[in-house]
Design a protein around this nucleic acid. Structure first.
Length: 157
DNA sequence: GCCAACGTTGGC
DNA sequence: GCCAACGTTGGC
């Protein structure tokens, strides 16, 4: 079996937070409307680890972890005329956008802030700390995964 | 196929 | 609220 891969996925907690995921245990990770991010979703395998990142708040941070429990399938919201994610140019025959399913795994003792990741040795090349990276799904290396998890377990600073 | 205009993301 | 980054759109 191939070793699992790791990802970072962004969400605005006012829309969907890690606590929301914990409450419902699993969710469809839908609404991704960027080709590069979609291609990363398509590369997700069952069991892959996900850093659940909260954006759009005072201190953007990885709040905890999730796990991929279902690989990519056509995102139903693209066909839903009432959804904000509706894409009228996508058809059932040739769906354009995919979703995966995520299950809650763990919440960090302390969120690992963007600031902290910026200043932690070993994370300086992480996709999320790179300037101008607005992708909502991005890859994480096994080394980065390990470091972020160790930071999340400890109390900050 | 180029590129200006425009829209969105997301940190600050 | 501002604005940098950057993807997308559309005229040519």
């Amino acid at each position: 079996m191939a070793p699992r891969s790791f990802w970072l996925m962004k969400s605005e907690p006012s829309v969907f937070s890690l606590d929301d995921l914990a409450a419902r245990r699993s969710t469809s990770w839908d609404g991704v409307r960027n080709y590069q991010a979609r291609n990363f979703l398509r590369a997700c395998r069952e069991g892959d680890g996900v850093l659940f990142y909260h954006s759009g708040i005072d201190e953007p941070a990885v709040a905890g972890t999730a796990r991929v429990v279902r690989t990519a399938y056509p995102d139903p919201s693209q066909f839903d005329a009432r959804s904000p994610y509706h894409d009228p140019t996508s058809t059932a025959d040739t769906p354009r956008w995919d979703a995966v399913d995520l299950a809650f795994e763990a919440r960090f003792a302390r969120p690992v802030t963007l600031e902290r990741m910026r200043t932690t040795p070993g994370l300086e090349n992480m996709a999320v700390v790179r300037r101008g990276n607005r992708l909502s799904v991005m890859p994480v290396t096994p080394a980065e995964w390990k470091i972020v998890l160790s930071l999340g377990k400890r109390a900050a600073r």
